[in-house]
Nucleic acid binder design. Structure first.
Lengths: 341, 341
DNA sequence: CTGTTAGCGCCTTCAT
DNA sequence: ATGAAGGCGCTAACAG
């Protein structure tokens, strides 16, 4: 447990007699005579030397670090973004600092972007939310690369990656229509979340244009929790005039809805049909399997990392903001009954 | 898109006429005359000033940063650790840098600890694995605080937090015994993962002392993937002499097993009983609900953060390594049939 | 290819 | 309570 000082160039200098500049060049991949190279390597090995990125970053003005900013609503997808982004950017020598807005006082939450800027991150991959939007806008205006992921804010002039949420909603509605359903219900999230709004709009617009009404009492827009979805679905199922099919707009809502259906005693895919969202493991484990729209979570995260990497490589480039929408995949199970009769 | 230089003390100096030392004192909570305080605040506001943590860290020798090191096997629990740890440590002004060993060449993976050390983290919260163990041991020996989470390595002399895995295995076995089951099967993970070994040992030891044999052909120890668990469970169910009950040792194994059972046509809780692990959402959504052992994931992460925080506060303290084992909770569903006959 | 020099932005004596 | 000066470890000129 010897808490010795970390070694520095000076220590290597002492062992090799070389100048600091040469040692620096060695560590920055410039040409150094084989002899010297070997001497430095040996000394470094012996000293357990490792570069001090603080000093290096201070001097160079770049941190080799990006921030990942997550919202207060955690849903399983967001934390996994961190891992994918880190994996991608590690190969480029970039580290990832994480900040979430979950918990903590409002005052602390307000400063999550500040915190990243104080750490001098070279860029931010963020799930934009009302509480961080203003700070993100300011950051982009000062020239910092920002990539939005999952959620979208038109006010923020930055690259964006997410699922093609409108299409996903449309696919769900069309699938139900194709199976003869005309009486639909939906359990979605609050409209200030762009993904929820888009999935909702995609679903309802297609439903209407296919002549399927969506009565207001069959529309539920609730906080994104399993419990809220459970409650909403329970109410939906108890309606005197129950719809024949249901669409849930995200993972937690899907879990809550399935649980409510099973607890109600109705049989999924027979008494009530359903298209869920994500929750692929649940979908596969159920009997009958749940038909669900699967979001390419890894691909979305990787694309965000790729965009960021590109922006970092070309800081000057004033390329237009890129907006990437990746398609979801409908995984068909047995939860949608055929009503062609 | 004006990429202006960030403001520094010098800029504040220019606006206020104060010395750099006074400005520094202001930002470090020392006493400053009200006039000056106001002047600095005004200038900072106007300049959009924010401290450069690189310069500060370089000078002070501490980074205000800890590393979180995750293994290559991702299981949903590990990414969520990041969020919980960050939430806790944010209140203490500490940031979190993430490193995972997933993906990337072995050479890159080998250097994950190096990477954190190069970033001069003040401590590391790690899931120890064979590929990072040696580096972690070296880190602790040089005096860096390390906290193990989830997995455990006796070779690593560091604090540790995890589920009480042995107890969890025992609870599962006892629950099955109490319901009259004598013919058991188990789908666990490979023995080099401490959690898997402990859950396995807890289960088998209790099974044996309760007079329930566990035949070798009913023991499966597989990689921690849904697919491997599916395959193993399928084989288990196809045995000429099928056990009456099954225990699965982690989330993914549970998902795979449930899927295999449902696909086999057997009815959970009637033809085959089962105690799962985690997967609480799946457990609740199934019909009948799955009896499962729930790991207090958040509490484990928070405890790790608390331990780290304490070590950082008292760097001198050579307190004994702390080993915390939090209890799991058996959530009873309807997947264990009663065989008292 | 190597060495000298001068900072990056901040904090910390030590004086005042 | 404030100021002047030096240096944390590293890199980017510029000479040689």
């Amino acid at each position: 447990v010897s808490s010795q000082q970390p070694a520095t160039y000076k220590d290597i200098q002492r062992l090799t007699g070389l100048s600091l500049a040469t040692i620096s060049k060695f560590y920055n991949g410039r040409n150094v005579l084989p002899n010297n190279r070997a001497a430095i390597e040996k000394a470094a090995e012996q000293l357990g030397y490792r570069v001090n990125t603080f000093a290096s970053s201070l001097r160079r003005g770049v941190s080799g670090t990006i921030g990942v900013l997550l919202p207060s609503l955690q849903n399983g997808f967001h934390p996994s973004v961190i891992v994918e982004v880190e994996k991608y950017l590690r190969n480029e020598g970039i580290s990832v600092i994480v900040t979430s807005e979950e918990g903590g006082d409002v005052s602390l939450v307000r400063d999550t972007v500040e915190l990243l800027l104080s750490r001098r991150v070279d860029g931010i991959i963020a799930v934009p939310s009302p509480s961080n939007l203003a700070a993100l806008v300011a950051a982009t205006q000062s020239g910092l690369p920002v990539v939005m992921i999952d959620w979208f804010s038109p006010e923020l002039d930055a690259d964006s990656v997410s699922l093609d949420n409108i299409d996903a909603g449309q696919v769900a509605a069309r699938h139900l229509a194709d199976h003869g359903h005309r009486e639909l219900g939906i359990v979605g999230g609050e409209s200030w979340i762009s993904t929820m709004q888009d999935r909702f709009e995609g679903f309802t617009s297609t439903a209407q244009s296919a002549g399927m009404g969506l009565r207001s009492e069959r529309i539920f827009r609730v906080p994104l929790t399993v419990d809220d979805a459970y409650a909403a679905t329970t109410r939906l199922l108890a309606l005197p005039d129950r719809p024949t099919a249901l669409f849930t707009c995200n993972h937690d809502l899907t879990v809550g809805a399935v649980t409510a259906i099973n607890d109600s005693g109705l049989r999924l895919g027979r008494d009530i049909s359903m298209v869920g969202f994500d929750a692929i493991e649940l979908a596969q484990a159920l009997r009958p399997k749940l038909t669900t729209i699967l979001q390419p979570a890894r691909e979305i995260a990787i694309e965000a990392a790729r965009m960021m990497s590109e922006r970092l490589r070309n800081p000057e480039a004033t390329a237009e903001r890129a907006i990437v929408r990746l398609p979801g995949r409908l995984v068909v199970g047995g939860s949608v009954a055929d009503r062609h009769d």
